[in-house]
Design a protein around this nucleic acid. Structure first.
Length: 490
RNA sequence: GGUACCUUGGCCGAGUGGCUAGGCACCGGUCUGCAAAACCGGUUACGGCGGUUCGAAUCCGCCAGGUACCUCCA
């Protein structure tokens, strides 16, 4: 891997490639966002954090990035007995709310969770319902090009016709013959010429409450059309990066490629990036599997599978400790070790600010810096970055212990390196304990510990230990120093 | 059934031919009145069998186990 160039793993070619933007200095990135018909769960945080890391790093490299992440608020079908019914509409009926009320509620909840995870907002966050006209235009274009047909008020994409000219399945490695042999019986199949075809406009059934007029019927846009319409609108007919979860590879992204190819005559995306899944007991955590834990439940600890609450930063760090293309297995043990590791990292970051430089330096950081950049340039390898940061943690602690020395230029270098990677690129934040701002409490604890200092001075160990042990039981961590003490609320 | 991918130490997770991440846990030491924190050192690996090679966790083959997608899903 060459040292200075960003390489990304392109799902389309199954290789790491040098990243070269279409327009020098600018990057266009589109990422599939959530379908807002439920609270965000741990699985949703993976692409959000992954592409946040990528967004942050591209910006750090000096690119001007337009990051588009959509909100899917219409159109996807449910999997159970209510086949053919709109997910959002179904949720709306259950809770007797307006569909847009449901959408707004879960969008707000998603935004709150993303903010807690310190995920930066995208540059543009378009909604599917806000781009019905654009989607109708895409459908019209595909019809004009002859790669779709109208049937009973719905419009279907003609996969076999498309496949006769273009390569359908190139992203997911599928062949149309194999697909034909394996497609299940689904509702509405009789309207389609082939089981492979997919709806790009769907006529609304009477019970559908989300519906829009179109040249073909009153209905709603098809499953994969919104991303094509919105990515084209905001990033152009050709853009750099398209991201999303691996589970969207087929059919969603394959269908996107087919649609933009059919409508525009060429591919839109240069680099396809896919994050892997978070698993629970080795199995994908997913809405439809019912084995998910929401982010709010993680933050509060209110779930049977959780032994305790885990902070948003713990979740973020947990995700960043694995490479984005690997599966990541949830367990209480793994989260607790992430929590402790993160604490150690952030404590070092705080200590770093207090270090006073000396005349001479026994340490330098060129190698560490190179290692960090090489790791990020090698397909955003955050676990390697973190490993290097932990090496720096050791150095910081050794300096504080007086076992190493650092001069001003090296201290500035270390601060800049550490803070850049910990806070700017990995996007971690110090989670301030709100109780620390309580002056009354601070005064009382300081008083008790000063009493303990006096007890220690007169070798009254019983009193000294009693104060320390009982404060510890209450959740305070007491650290004796040479000439005093430090404490914090755990 | 088809396609793709995975299997690393007590746990989590990097690593793609030699130099063997990192975190958590555990053990020993330093410091401390004793602790905690910190530092130093240590222990436990590459699913199985074969092959290629001077050398394989890393390449190839077979076997076993697992996952994802093929229907909405991050």
């Amino acid at each position: 891997m060459s040292a200075n160039k960003l390489h990304v793993y392109n799902t389309l070619t199954r290789k790491k490639e040098v990243f070269t933007p279409i327009t020098p200095g600018f990057v266009g990135m589109y990422v599939c966002g959530p379908t807002v018909y439920g609270h965000a769960h741990l699985g949703h945080s993976r692409p959000a954090v992954t592409f946040d890391l990528i967004f942050r790093y591209l910006k750090h490299l000096g690119y001007k990035v337009r990051y588009v992440r959509n909100i899917t608020d219409v159109g996807h079908l449910v999997a159970d007995a209510d086949q053919g019914e709109d997910k959002i509409a179904k949720q709306a009926k259950i809770s007797k709310l307006e569909p847009m009320e449901v959408v707004q509620h879960f969008t707000n909840s998603y935004h709150k969770n993303m903010d807690q995870l310190n995920v930066l907002p995208p540059s543009i966050e378009p909604t599917a319902t806000g781009h019905i006209i654009e989607q109708i235009h895409i459908v019209e274009k595909i019809l004009e090009q002859g790669y779709a047909y109208v049937s009973m008020g719905s419009v279907y994409f003609d996969v076999e016709k498309f496949a006769s000219k273009y390569n359908y399945g190139k992203l997911s490695g599928r062949k149309t013959e194999d697909l034909k042999a394996n497609t299940r019986e689904l509702e509405g199949q009789d309207e389609k010429r082939s089981s492979l075809d997919f709806a790009i406009w769907k006529k609304a059934q009477p019970e559908h409450i989300m519906r829009w007029p179109s040249p073909w019927s009153e209905g709603f846009p098809g499953w994969h059309t919104e991303c094509v319409a919105m990515s084209t609108k905001y990033l152009g007919k050709k853009f750099d990066i398209h991201g999303g979860g691996m589970d969207l590879l087929f059919p969603h992204h394959e269908a996107e490629i087919a649609q933009s190819c059919a409508a525009l005559g060429h591919d839109s995306v240069n680099y396809w990036l896919h994050n892997n899944m978070i698993t629970i007991n080795g199995q994908k955590m997913g809405k439809s599997l019912g084995n998910f834990i929401t982010l709010d439940e993680f933050f509060s600890g209110m779930h049977d599978l959780l032994e305790k609450a885990y902070s948003p930063m713990t979740i973020r760090f947990f995700i960043l400790q694995a490479h984005y293309r690997s599966t990541l297995d949830f367990s209480n043990e793994a989260l607790e070790s992430a929590e402790k590791g993160l604490e150690r990292l952030l404590k070092a970051a705080a200590l770093l600010e207090k270090i006073k430089p000396t005349e001479k330096s026994s340490v330098s950081f060129e190698q560490a810096e190179e290692n960090c950049y090489n790791a990020m340039n090698d397909d955003f390898n955050s676990p390697i970055v973190i490993a290097n940061l932990f090496d720096l943690v050791k150095v910081i602690n050794s300096i504080v212990d007086g076992k190493e020395t650092i001069d001003l230029p090296n201290l500035d270098k270390l601060k800049s390196l550490f803070n850049t990677f910990v806070f700017n690129i990995l996007g971690l934040t110090q989670e301030e304990n709100s109780d620390n701002s309580n002056n009354l409490l601070n005064g009382v604890v300081d008083l008790l510990l000063n009493v303990r200092m006096d007890a220690k001075a007169s070798k009254n160990w019983d009193v000294a230990d009693k104060i320390r042990n009982e404060l510890s039981d209450l959740g305070f961590e007491i650290k004796d120093k040479k000439d005093g003490f430090e404490w914090e609320l755990k």
